[in-house]
Simulated assay, not measured.
Amino acid sequence: MCRIAAYTGPAIPLENIIIKPRHSLLEQSQHATEAKLAVNGDGFGIAWYDHGEVPGLYRDVLPAWADDNLTSLCRMVRSRLFLSHVRASTMGETSRPNCHPFQVGRWSFVHNGQVPHFPAIRRRLEEALPDNPYAARRGSTDSEMIFLTLLAHGLADDPDVAMARTLEVLGHGPAPVKITCVFSDGEALYGFRYASQGPAPTLYASGILDNGGRAFASEALDGGQWDAVPENRIVRLTNPAVRQVA
């Protein structure tokens, strides 16, 4: 399973979340403790927001620990809101288009989990996409298709309704559907966990960090306050408060 870390708040160097914490995302790329696989080495990526609506995007197929550019980038780039991801692939080959985050317009999206019956429903899902999200598809993963389906079902208007409709069209298969995701429009971070059977992959929301910001992470980055995101409910994380979407 993949690992996720995301932040919103006063602008900080990306390294404050991705590199420096005791159990940072970089550390989790080799030593995850709350996933089936300890190693997440099938690529990584970051989406970050500064001025303008469209985020910057950096993705590669290298393991996060093997790319010196990542530590340099995270040291030099500051952002008020960013999403980051390290991948352990379960669907789709190891390629840059299959690395997270996925981005369309102002929206960015990262995912941990799997739709095991995706090959059986892929054509139906693709045919249901409106022209714009269909044209945005670059990879072959179930993760990207979840994101595009959310956009097609009105993510920009009502994330809660879009998620409910997306889960409905994904349906059920012989193995459980598991979705833990974080997404953003550049103004807020949204976190969500779902499993059709058994527990959903982990996701935690931080308390207020020492600089007044907030974060999501698959595993707690440090010894501060980290609360599990409840299943089947979107959580909206802003600076400095977090609230649940009704």
Rank of each mutant, 00 (worst) to 15 (best):
G173K: 11
V86Q: 08
A195F: 04
A47T: 05
G224N: 07
E168I: 01
A246I: 01
M76C: 03
L83Y: 02
W226L: 10
G213V: 02
L189D: 01
L167H: 14
P116E: 05
R59P: 07
L129Y: 05
L14P: 09
P10D: 05
G213K: 10
R122A: 11
A136S: 15
Y194T: 04
S29E: 07
V177H: 12
A220N: 09
H111L: 05
R75F: 02
V110K: 10
A215M: 11
S143Q: 03
I12M: 09
Q197R: 13
F118Q: 12
G105P: 12
L203R: 04
A246K: 14
D222K: 14
F147Q: 03
S84H: 09
H31Q: 11
L129H: 10
Q30P: 03
L167R: 13
N98V: 01
G212F: 01
F118H: 10
A135W: 01
K20N: 13
R22T: 13
R214C: 10
G207P: 10
I208C: 05
V229P: 14
G198C: 08
A88N: 10
P63A: 13
S72D: 11
G52Y: 04
S218R: 09
S84T: 11
R75L: 03
P174F: 03
N112I: 00
A5R: 14
A6V: 00
M163D: 03
T166G: 08
E53P: 10
D227H: 08
R124E: 12
G113Q: 05
L125E: 04
S95T: 13
A135T: 04
D222V: 12
R78I: 02
L73R: 14
H111P: 08
A38M: 14
F109P: 10
G224I: 00
V235W: 04
A128V: 03
F118K: 08
H153A: 11
D227C: 08
T149H: 02
G45T: 06
S72T: 15
E144L: 00
V182D: 02
F118C: 12
A38R: 13
S143A: 09
T90M: 03
D210H: 13
A66D: 15
A38N: 09
L81G: 01
I18Y: 06
E219A: 15
G56I: 00
P159V: 00
E126Y: 12
P230C: 08
Q28I: 09
R59V: 15
A66N: 15
F44K: 07
V182L: 06
L70P: 07
M145K: 12
A47D: 00
A64L: 15
N211V: 00
P55C: 09
V161E: 07
E127F: 04
G92E: 00
I12H: 02
L37E: 15
V235F: 02
D222G: 14
I234W: 06
K36Q: 10
D67Y: 10
W65D: 15
F147T: 00
R193N: 04
R138D: 06
T8N: 00
Y49M: 03
L129R: 08
D158A: 12
V54M: 14
N98C: 05
G139A: 04
L83V: 01
E168S: 14
W65N: 13
D68E: 12
H23S: 06
R80Y: 01
L62H: 13
G41C: 06
G45Y: 01
A162H: 07
Y194S: 08
H111G: 10
Q30A: 12
F109Q: 04
Y7R: 03
Q197P: 01
C99P: 09
E15Q: 14
R243G: 12
A32R: 05
V161G: 00
F82R: 01
